[in-house]
């Protein structure tokens, strides 16, 4: 069985759920690791990870901003400090700026939390070149109904088509805020099949690609090329 990872989970300083609870449930569901990526602008205090779970829970940050200049400043601030750098996507300007920057690891929910944003073929090509993983946020599917969900599924289907074409890294994440938002890997695969992702693709997006993102696999390649 492959090692499954969920790289977009929000816990204690942002929500009221302690990291230990997330760890307990994720472990029970069969994950090998989760990443706590709290939004940088809502952080009240720093999360404390007990050493016993530090091999399972990875630290990350999700940058949420509206202007490109502020995004660049924040990337500079957090780069190297945390192992995982995610950007809160949604608007087209932010998506573009995040995908063009090779320091960013993940562009979280590029089609927004309610399906308002879009990705173009040019942007996905940048993602493949810079090794920025495009995230498919399944929480949006779980928490919406009817026309909202139809719009989100349509956007995700379009993104998936582009990701396949340009071979950009894609990951599936739960974007969980409570323990009840977490889903087991096989449920995630079943949910991913709703927007046309095949089973082996979904397994890849839950195991090998997140593992590569954590190891900065695609980044090293580009660095070697530059030298």
């Amino acid at each position: 069985m492959p090692n499954f990872f969920d790289l977009n989970v929000h816990a204690y300083p942002e929500t009221d759920v302690p990291v230990e609870d997330m760890y307990r449930i994720a472990k029970r569901y069969g994950y090998t690791g989760i990443a706590i990526t709290n939004h940088d602008d809502t952080e009240k205090g720093k999360e404390i990870l007990p050493p016993s779970i530090s091999t399972f829970v990875f630290r990350g940050v999700e940058i949420r901003t509206k202007s490109v200049s502020e995004l660049k400043r924040k990337i500079k601030l957090h780069y190297g400090e945390v192992p995982l750098l995610a950007v809160h996507g949604g608007s087209e300007v932010i998506n573009e700026a995040a995908l063009k920057d090779s320091r960013v690891d993940i562009l979280a929910h590029p089609c927004g939390e309610k399906g308002e944003g879009e990705l173009s073929h040019v942007l996905v090509r940048y993602a493949a070149k810079n090794g920025v993983a495009i995230d498919f946020n399944l929480n949006a599917i779980i928490h919406s109904r009817r026309s909202d969900r139809a719009r989100i599924l349509w956007k995700m289907r379009e993104n998936l088509k582009l990701v396949r074409k340009y071979k950009a890294p894609a990951i599936i994440s739960s974007n969980a805020r409570f323990i009840y938002d977490l889903r087991a890997p096989r449920e995630m695969i079943a949910l991913a099949s709703l927007f046309g992702m095949k089973k082996d693709e979904a397994i890849h997006a839950l195991s090998a690609i997140p593992e590569g993102v954590l190891e900065h696999k695609w980044k090293k390649k580009t660095e070697v090329e530059i030298i």
């Binding site: 599917i141 779980i142 928490h143 009840y180 889903r183 087991a184 449920e187 079943a190 949910l191």
Partner: peptide, 21 residues
């Protein structure tokens, strides 16, 4: 298909739940 439908359930009468097969 049923698994996906079960995974889509997020609350029952405003009590949050999560389901897993």
């Amino acid at each position: 298909e049923v698994r996906a439908a079960l995974a889509c359930i997020h609350s029952v009468n405003e009590a949050r739940i999560g389901m897993r097969v």
